[in-house]
Design a protein around this nucleic acid. Sequence first.
DNA 1: GCATAAGGAAAGGCCACACAGAGTC
DNA 2: GCGACTCTGTGTGGCCTTTCCTTAT
Length: 380
Amino acid sequence: MLKEETNDVGSGAGGNNWARVCDTCRSAACTVYCRADSAYLCGGCDARVHAANRVASRHERVWVCEACERAPAAFLCKADAASLCTTCDAEIHSANPLARRHQRVPILPISGSLYGSSATEQGGRKMASAAETEDGFMDLEGDDTIAEEDEDEAASWLLLNPRKNSTNQNNGYLFSGEVDEYLDLVEYNSSVENHFPDQYNQQQQHYSVPHKGYAGDSVVPVQSGEAKDHLQQQQHQSFQFGLDYESSKAAYSYNGSISHSVSVSSVDVGIVPESTMSDISISHARPPKGTIDLFSGPSVQMPTQLTPMDREARVLRYREKKKTRKFEKTIRYASRKAYAETRPRIKGRFAKRTDVEVEVDQMFSTTLMTEAGYGIVPSF
DNA sequence: GCATAAGGAAAGGCCACACAGAGTC
DNA sequence: GCGACTCTGTGTGGCCTTTCCTTAT
């Protein structure tokens, strides 16, 4: 059994971008691996098979790796709140020193019902939600604290989401604001760029367009309207189905269906649409725990009452964002980068150009102008 | 087991200036 | 409506300082 797992991991982590399908129904993406049956099962088949009798319900199962979706998860990364197989764990957490510091704990298999007693709701299965523990399993006791913490943090991510689109997308579970959708797009893009270089590059050819023809700060492309519409459509679809447990797993996993559909970015630098920058900082701003709860104040755009669906959607969205956080610096304007690199410094700080340097630059510009036969606007 | 010191890593601030974008005429 | 112009805020990299965490005593 373990041999098979190892082989699968080897081919799955990073090498195969498609989630393993359920061994039973052969149609849905698998979400759990049953060691007793040596079978990968989707949420529906798992619930059906292991609810058949008491013996079956004792089968030990583990979630499938959220990164490759092809191997049983072996470790839980607390920093990423992600269950990962050994290979993905090694890959992801050897990427940089920061990642190496992530605290990971082995995932213990569980038996019984993964989806709680109300497994029939929402199309037969209960979605993965705030009731899950950090490792993604249902916590039968004492899960309220964790869920509330997640909800609190999730709420902070959504504070400024205007509900202006509620009339158009009034299912209550969609991204509510244009801005936040854009933010999501950027983050998903980062995820895609990291995990699907091939597909990402191919699809980029379809949807990525240069920001401007001008060669200055224009190196940072933005998504075309077609791409954005396409993405929004995909996201909306994913969220509409996302309340179903199985679909939500696919939609929110590292490289689930939604990731396959996202395909906009530059090649060397990440895109951050300028209009979103302030929103990013605002939406992430959050007072530390233990401070005065400003979120309950009247000035904050926070719904006073959340339906269970809203709550679940918030937590889900927060978890997904948490997984796809990207800490690498994003260069938006390559020309500014070039200027900064050539700019004189004193102890690392930018320094004023001396008159001599200005004169040299002017002479250089003049020389170029005469030699090239056309004018160049002097920079300094 | 607890307290303190030392070392390392990470985070954040600072600086000048070209540029984007809003506003005005 | 369109172009020209002014003004303001933003983004950029390298070094330094501060803060936090781990390890040793």
